[in-house]
Amino acid sequence: MNSEKHIVSAFDRDLEAVQALVMKMGGLVEAAMLDAAQALDTRDEELAARVRQDDKAIDALEEQIQQECARLIALRGPTASDLRTVLSVMRIAANLERCGDYAKNLAKRSVVLSQMSPIDGAAGSIRRMARSVVILLKDALDAYIARDARMAADVRLRDHEVDQMYNALFREFLTHMLEDARNITACMHLHFIAKNIERVGDHATAIAEQVIYLVEGRMPEDERPKESGISALSAASIRQE
């Protein structure tokens, strides 16, 4: 990565401005995720409503970032690492926007869930999972700002932990549903929440991959460890027989 300044300093200002917007967006998404999980855990409908409302700001930032990037491409003709910066900014903004949607969805479901009798330990587990995924997201964005490909590679590997948390929750919810059919509605909502948080982890991984692309000029080719819920599901169905 080239840390030297451009001869045309306005180019540097434009690039820095658009990256600052991404960081601002990242901060909002992290907060939304944590707040939504807290709203679920504490049955705080007011907080949930605020998370849903605040997603508009995240969407607006994404729109602004895409416009700024289009402007930058049109007016400055970025090349090499500058071009990769702009391209990665556009992709990261799209990833973050999606994460914001998941937080909003979590908030929505938390309102529905607050009307139902709680599932033992579920909200706490979801909150822990949300915290883990927010750390992952934060690390991915820190790696981006530091242009740290090794840190990004580490984020890619750690997404595995979130996947495992999801699989564990998945089994737990299945058990609850098998035990008592009245748990099914709540558990289905909780399952969607867990799945969405797991998806946020995937977006954090995608951001980490953009960091690697930005630094090294190519996407990482090696496979990262993956574990889908499919194996957990088949394990559960065997148990059922």
Partner: peptide, 18 residues
């Protein structure tokens, strides 16, 4: 050359840096 130059001097030149 224009997306991922290998030499830092090429990078500096084509991106308009000193």
């Amino acid at each position: 050359i224009f997306t991922n130059p290998r030499d830092p001097r090429t990078e500096s030149y084509i991106t308009g840096r000193i």
